[in-house]
């Protein structure tokens, strides 16, 4: 019942928040210099003032700000994110087409980073002065401080050019024919490098955090109690200590959901991954306001859903969360 109440509560907040995001995004985009008319005139090699006004009229850009805003919000409420000037397609279609590719990339990277990060963190916490522990620290520092596009390009040079193990770009090879599994394996091959690149940032964060919290938890009284009960070391570490160390890691993982778009933009650009990031990049260059707004709206939605899931996961991990009123 408590969980149900929480979900309802959060959905109400989510609605208010989305509305605010919508207004803010629209206002910011409106304030930014340049619009689609400039892009069109550029692609035509220049246009006179009259033509620009004509174009703006066509797209409804000549109307006052508040009227444009009201029109836009009215459309969004009817699940219409508008029409892309640049791609000449409905924005919702554009975004939804790109979402699966991005989610595939980001979720795989997240899960890989989370699992590996926690395992490495736990392992190095048990032997804080061991060789592996120092290696993890070093690796984490490297992963965190190296810019993703640089890591991505290095991986490309190493494993696509010097040792051609993986394809250079894209998500699938159009020349390949075969059943579902042939295609699945093809996509996986394309995924390896972008996933590794993206995971390297997350992995750095999670392994450092897991290591720090585990070291702290292993020194607590209840871990000593678990040992005094005669539990095997494996149970002491994984049942008693790990669950108590998970909360901060889960919280951080939830916050990283916002990286769905931001982190993926660069990685997708390096690997020409046909996801939201690439779309965002293209539409920003083209000043395609409706598409940008659509992507921003969608990423706000993802962040809100991510936070709700984090809240639920925390309740599962730690019974104390939400128990006090």
């Amino acid at each position: 019942m408590k969980t149900f109440g929480l979900i309802v509560n959060r959905l109400v907040y989510a609605f208010v928040l989305l509305f605010a995001v919508l207004v803010l995004n629209f206002t910011l985009m409106h304030m930014a210099p340049g619009d689609v008319a400039d892009t069109i005139s550029q692609s035509m090699g220049g246009a006179d003032e009259e033509l620009l006004i004509e174009i703006r009229k066509d797209y409804g850009l000549d109307q006052p700000y508040y009227q444009q805003l009201v029109t836009y919000i009215g459309k969004v409420l009817r699940f219409d994110l508008g029409h892309s000037f640049f791609f000449n397609e409905p924005v919702s279609k554009l975004v939804l087409e790109r979402v699966p590719a991005t989610l595939l990339l980001v979720i795989t990277a997240q899960i890989l980073a989370l699992l590996l990060g926690v395992v490495l963190g736990v392992y190095s916490a048990r032997k804080p002065n061991g060789i592996l522990s120092h290696f993890v620290t070093l690796f984490a520092l490297f992963g965190y401080s190296a810019p993703v596009f640089w890591t991505g390009i290095l991986l490309l040079i190493a494993f696509s050019l010097q040792i051609p193990l993986f394809p250079v770009a894209g998500m699938r090879d159009v020349t390949i024919e075969g059943n579902f599994w042939v295609h699945a394996i093809d996509v996986m091959k394309h995924m390896v490098l972008p996933v590794l690149t993206l995971a390297s940032i997350f992995l750095a964060l999670y392994s450092r955090l897991a290591r720090a919290t585990m070291i702290e938890t292993l020194g607590t009284d209840f871990v000593r109690t678990a040992r005094a009960k005669g539990l095997p070391e494996r149970q002491v570490v994984y049942k008693h200590a790990l669950r108590n160390s998970l909360s901060p890691v889960v919280t951080l993982a939830g916050l990283q959901f916002s990286a769905v778009v931001s982190g993926a933009v660069l990685v997708e650009a390096v690997f020409s991954w046909p996801g939201l990031g690439t779309l965002a990049f293209q539409s920003i260059i083209a000043r395609d306001t409706p598409t940008i707004l659509g992507i921003l709206f969608f990423s706000a939605l993802v962040v809100i859903i991510g936070n709700l899931l984090t809240d639920l996961a925390l309740r599962f991990v730690d019974p104390r969360v939400g128990a006090s009123k």
Binding site: T220, D221, F222, R224, T225, A226, R227, A228, K229, G230, L231, P232, K239, H240, R243, N244, V317, D318, P319, R320
Partner: peptide
């Protein structure tokens, strides 16, 4: 020693507030 601990010789500690695992019933 592990087989004796908690079975034939067991121990209670000074700090009841922190000696139990907070996330297990």
């Amino acid at each position: 020693l592990r087989k004796i601990r908690g079975n034939e010789i067991s121990m209670i500690f000074q700090e009841p507030m922190t000696s139990l695992n907070p996330v297990l019933s």
